[in-house]
Design a protein around this nucleic acid. Sequence first.
DNA 1: GCCGTTTTCGGCCCGACTGTTTTCAGTCG
Length: 563
Amino acid sequence: MKNSEIADLLDRTALLLEAVGENRFKIVAFRRAAKNVRNLSEDIEDVWNTGGLEQLPGIGKGIAKKIDEYIRTGKITYLQKLENQVPQAAIDLMAIPGIGPRTAFKLTKEHGIQNIDSLREAIQNGSLDDFFGPTIRKKIISEIEMIKSTSKRMLLPQAEEIAGSIVEYLKAGGIHIIIAGSIRRCKATVGDIDAIALDENAVELLSKFPHTSKVLSRGTKKASFILDNGVQVDVRISEKDELGATLLYFTGSKDHSIALRNIAISKGYKLNEYGLFDESSGKLIASGSEEGIYKALGMQYIEPELREDRGEIQAALQGRLPNLLRKGSLKGDLQMHTLWSDGLSTIEQMAREAKLLGYEYIAITDHSKSARLANGLNEDRFLRQWKEIDALNEKMSPFTILKGVEVEIKGDGSLDLEADFLNSFDVVGISMHQGYNQSPEKLTQRMIKAMGSKRVHYLCHPTNRLIGIRGGHEINMERIIQEAKDRGIMIEINSQPNRLDIDEVWARKAAEEGVDLVINSDAHSTEELTYVRYGENVARRAWLESKNVINTLSLNQLLRRLS
DNA sequence: GCCGTTTTCGGCCCGACTGTTTTCAGTCG
């Protein structure tokens, strides 16, 4: 049973409750439960087995009973009843910005709208003129056109690039803006771009940005725009002495903000985007800096990457936040590919670039022979590659190039290079690139068998997810982590922006279990070596400290760890 | 529906913007 499967059902329940106009706090309760189940780092079925569902935060008798019913019978009667009550059309209509649950429900129930196309028809033939005013009618038609080209969440680098172009454009106009939201939290994917400006002229200037295709709303405190690539930009106007409060509010996450506001309430304060105030007197307590607000709430400063309401607030109140891995503190990179297999650069080019980045060492880890499409190396070619590496090491000393391999796990869990041969490598990573269609149980067995091979240092991108393209394998990550712990095998945080595998939830779990992680670029060209910063994001969002990350070690320490 | 070093009942974050609103509901972040 996948936690996300249960979480999706709880989210769907919340959505349907919204449509029927249920008490909004009940809706919030389902959403919170869904989130907590999604972020759980143990299998919900195991929790259920031990009768601990109601001990989970946000899950009480009611929701526990529904989860129990689902695990036992595969259905939730309560949800089924809701499904009968709310037409699928209402859910579809809610995808149109500006149409919320109440409007969607009314449209389907009172006006017989079947889907998005029939809504457009009804608006165009005038049969909804009594329901919508002219402005809304026009807006909805335009939104429906948009929705077909609407982009899903984008990867962080893409969002950073768009945000960067906005920052540059406004800078040229003499206006400084700060990017907040999920970009500041360094989330793997970004939905829209949130920016803060101290100058209200930012709104006027942005409406003239060559890539702005539409102004969604525009007031004195905030405005929203749609760019020609479909990306939404929300701008918030702040004052310098309120900047801390605005940053806090606009960085989110929403759940973190809500939790923080509850802490404020419990201390007799009120927190909003203008500042932290004394509830009774209205007196301002703090607003200029985030640090000041956290301090006034009696807690440690919380880095943006941690602001997801995953326990960081309790930890900050108790003064036990982790000493997060610093960006740029890696001393080497243990996975990259060259022209020998499927990379685009030579070993020397990779090494020189890595040296420029300030590394002490890298490992060249080209694919092994059964990765045919990737031009994997057989034993003879590795022997020849090592000669090249030896020569380069003499030339570049003390910078060190380690002899590595990303060795293929075959369908039966064996590796495609013999143990004796693997002994000659400095570092061995194992991964799967084929035979994905096995059952989750079989895939798990296969990985565990591979981890039992004699010389394995780390497990590469364990779930093989490609964000936005395919979800990861439903392998039993708890067992894999246990196996890694028992055998002293490290787990990779692969930094390719569309992989970021393992993710922050499991990386955190692995570290809690005492498993070491390694942040690798998996670069296929010199340009990709800097991708490690996305892996560092994952590490920080996973609460990792440098002691959890093996490639923060100096070369000598690393070699001792690898031997 | 959940939750409790003030509570097992009565709360549940807070505010901006829009429409055709003359006091507020709906939507959004």
